[in-house]
Amino acid sequence: MRSVLEVQNLNVRYGEIHAVKGVSLRVEKGEIVALIGANGAGKTSTLSAIMGMIRAEGSVKFMGKDIERFSPWKRAQMGLSIVPERARVFPNMTVLENLEVGAYLVKDKKVFKERLEWVYDIFPRLRERQKQLALTLSGGEKQMLAIGRSLMNKPKLLLIDEISLGLMPKLVDEIFQILIKLNESGITLLISEQNTKKALEISSRAYVLQNGRVVKEGPSGELKEDEEIRKAYLGV
């Protein structure tokens, strides 16, 4: 079977700092794959590089095509999307406008309406707040809006960076439930998470990053039982 995403020997450098050192990973259709690791392990850099938002070396294949030379908007047009760290919604635009921009590539009005209803069904709170400026939303609502904005383009692969960052535990549970639902509706997910426990619960496979390198990988169920991981990340 052809992988949705295949990354080989990815390297990201910020000047002197070598943030991602030869990371290789793949994501199959229908999976939830997690990137776990401590702060500064290179998770965000890896996702940003896959989206093309930062300069990187190495091979990135999406749906069997080499995309490493494509700009982010080109990748978005191919069906790749990212929910960036801390949501990065457009603060001075209303919720609805944010979603409209998300549907920037959707030219058909009917399709747009369907997608909008779909997103509103997933996040009823966005419907309630559709006329509000995005900057007035709470942290959790901003994350929902960021996901909703990505969904408007119905991505084949959704990259989600640190969705749980700064959210209260109850909201984290809620958002992770939604991620599972999204996955069931056919969207493949690659998520980066500091919340290792949650990430391993919802994902089928995971990669553990440390100092920019993949130090472990495997089915999430196995990693959960791994002695080192339990010590280092699960605090057991």
Binding site: M53, P72, A76, I82, V89, F90, E97, Y104, N153
Partner: peptide, 21 residues
């Protein structure tokens, strides 16, 4: 929307398919 998205955040705009250039 293309313009506004660029004004607000170029990276986010690009990641949803708006060609900033």
């Amino acid at each position: 929307y293309g313009f506004e998205a660029i004004r607000e955040n170029e990276d986010a705009a690009e990641s949803i398919g708006v060609s900033v250039p």
